[in-house]
Nucleic acid binder design. Structure first.
Length: 590
RNA sequence: GGGAGCGUAGAACAGCCUGGAGUGUUCGCCGGCCUGUCAAGCCGGAGGUCGCGGGUUCAAAUCCCGUCGUUCCCGCCA
């Protein structure tokens, strides 16, 4: 036995006992005649006291040396207790000190104070994970999956593993591909979600399925997006929408209780998609703050500003937000206008409410006094407030731009407050720029009305729903299509003709033919949930070994070039471009 | 695919706008002193391809172009 106690378990109750602890040297404080050092392990930290004359080895102890200390627990002298430390009322008087393993000079210090470049952290992730905050994040993640499993087990769910080498379905996100050796020229795809397998499990009679599933999407990175991520995936038979929502709410409540120690108010608030878009301009609203979008169309319908009237004449809309008394300057106006254009608006009209009630704005001269007053009234504006107004011939462009500006300006910087909500009644389809139609959720989502699907698919509302926390899309689900006729109909509307549907999804359509129970389910991102609950700004902080934005793991160097013989086994060869890149990189790595 | 920011000692930065010797700060590292510290303190020291390549210039960390890396954003993400 190397140790008798965890460092964090050396409490006042051990006074007088001989204990052995093992861990890393946090810091050494050598006063000449007496020296202190802290031993840190996964359980916490305890102070060791040694006389350097008696224990010359303390001179050698550097930060992060792995040591073993045997000693007697004693109370600290009065006045030297450390209230910030769980073990702060005691210390270990060293009897024997051994170095188990020396450590090189560290690339960064193992504490939460040091602000270190992420690339350096990732290159030495094993050290980064020693930092208390990162260790806590790992622990929180484990507690999250434990709470999920506990809750779903109590509800009678079966945890089932589905394959990760599956077939590619090019809709939606780009697939991560894996070449087959035994069947040269053919490829597996890594799953973007276990969607069809869990539906098959419903057909198999599992009735209550879940899986904590690694999923893969080969798309560009964001602070909340990695190539691989982990989802809680679940599905149930004979479920209506509210059965799914209630189940997810129970899971979320259990996780929030375990990680935050607070009770989640259930049921969670619900917004329809249309309401969310109209009030917040996004389908994942952050409702921790107001600044809601207001329709100014009626107010400005006869004003002299052609930007507004032209948009209205084209069947569009004019809407605004009251950004409140924010600091305003020419450069701020330029910045926000550029942002609005980046988001797809043709421009941005701003107005500052002056003390005399007038509007200072490039557009103010176009408004009659009554119009100025009406705009202020619509937006509940008072002196000093900044009003931002967007006009567009497309409703969705207008509200989306304002919704993003609203987020830019008002969104709380952290997640100390939690605001979960459901967004329900998503449209079944959405239009692309070119006017063609695509699914807004996925092609296995059922419509609320099969009649609508047939007669006016562009207006059809789906049985899809999202759960959102603090403006972050946590996950989504739906009641699925269990009728193969309807499923074929949806493929048809999406422009997948019968023969193509048969070729790609024939196996699934056939499965639906054998008495498929009505079913539905959900999936939410565990990385994102833990990120929010741990009050982190990026999922990389809660993923033990994440990748950088270009898909590199700075620690292992993945992805790497492989031997030509390996490529040969797979029937693959590299393109000219790839070969050039390889030669450059081989000469000048990194 | 596009836009923006960043890259200077082991770490975090300042210096760059307005070119003039690798100048500076904090932490770490090395040596010394020190009997109650806990981000110990004091004294001394070492440590640099200013990401890389090119250009402008008498002179480049600084200005220009390119490139690599990284972060954030737009597109993309059923």
């Amino acid at each position: 036995m190397i140790r008798s106690h965890g460092a964090g378990a050396v409490l006042a109750s051990e006074i007088g006992n001989t204990v052995t602890v093992a861990g890393w040297v946090q810091r050494r404080r050598d006063h000449g005649g007496v020296a202190f050092f802290d031993v840190r392990d996964a359980s916490g930290l305890v102070q060791v006291v040694a006389d350097p004359a008696e224990h010359p080895i303390v001179d050698d102890l550097k930060m992060e040396y792995c040591v073993r200390v045997e000693g007697v627990v004693r109370p600290r002298p009065v006045g030297t207790e450390n209230p910030d430390l769980v073990t702060g009322s005691v210390e270990i008087g060293a009897v024997d000190i051994q170095v188990l393993a020396a450590a090189k000079t560290l690339p960064f210090m193992i504490d939460d104070r040091s602000d270190v470049d992420e690339l350096v952290r990732l290159r030495h992730r094993y050290l980064d994970l020693r930092r208390p905050r990162m260790a806590a994040n790992l622990r929180a993640r484990s507690k999250t999956t434990a709470a999920i499993r506990r809750t779903l087990d109590q509800l009678g769910f079966l945890e089932v593993e589905t394959p990760t080498l599956i077939n590619s379905t090019p809709e939606g996100a780009r697939d991560m591909l894996v070449p087959s050796r035994l069947r040269q020229g053919e490829f597996y795809a890594l799953p973007q979600s276990p969607q069809l397998f869990k539906q098959l499990l419903m057909i198999s009679g599992v009735e209550r399925y879940f899986q904590i599933a690694r999923c893969y999407r080969d798309e560009d990175f964001r602070a909340d997006r990695q190539l691989e991520f982990t989802q809680l995936d679940l599905e149930g038979s004979y479920w209506a929408r509210d059965d799914v929502l209630a189940t997810i709410e129970k899971v979320l409540a259990a996780v929030v209780a375990d990680l935050r120690g607070v009770e989640l108010g259930l049921p969670l608030p619900r917004l329809t998609w249309t309401e969310a878009m109209n009030r917040y301009g996004v389908d994942k609203p952050d409702i921790r703050f107001g600044m809601e979008i207001t329709d100014l169309g009626e107010t400005v319908s006869s004003c002299g500003f052609s930007v507004f009237t032209d948009a209205l004449d084209a069947g569009g809309t004019v809407r605004g937000i009251n950004a409140g008394p924010i600091e305003w300057s020419r450069s701020k106006a330029d910045l926000l206008t550029a942002r609005a254009k980046e988001l797809g608006a043709k421009g941005l009209v701003w107005a500052v409410v002056e003390d005399d009630g007038s509007l200072r704005s490039p557009a103010s001269k176009f408004f009659e006094t009554w119009e100025t007053e009406a705009i202020k009234g619509d937006l509940s504006a008072s002196s000093g407030d900044v009003l931002l107004i967007v006009a567009d011939s497309r409703w969705k462009t207008c509200v989306s731009v304002l919704g993003s500006l609203r987020n830019d300006l008002g969104r709380p910087k952290d997640h100390s407050e939690l605001s979960f909500l459901w967004v329900v009644d998503f449209p079944m389809f959405e239009e692309r720029e070119d006017g063609s139609i695509t699914f807004s959720h996925h092609p296995f989502t059922s419509p609320q009305s099969v009649d609508d699907l047939r007669t006016r698919p562009r207006e059809a509302v789906s049985n899809a729903y999202d759960v959102v926390v603090n403006g972050i899309e946590l996950g989504s689900g739906s009641i699925r299509i269990h009728d193969p006729v309807v499923q074929r109909q949806v493929f048809d509307i999406l422009g997948i003709d019968a023969s193509e549907a048969e070729r790609r999804f024939g196996w699934f359509l056939e499965a639906l033919e054998y008495g498929t129970p009505p079913h539905g389910g959900f999936a939410f991102g565990i990385d994102r949930l833990v990120m929010v609950l741990q009050n982190e700004g990026s999922i990389r902080e809660v993923i033990p070994f994440p990748k950088t934005q270009t898909g590199l793991d700075p620690l292992t160097g993945a992805p790497t070039w492989v031997d030509d013989s390996q490529l040969g086994d797979l029937g693959l060869s590299l393109s000219e471009t790839a070969l050039e890149r390889r030669d450059e990189k081989t000469l000048d790595p990194g």
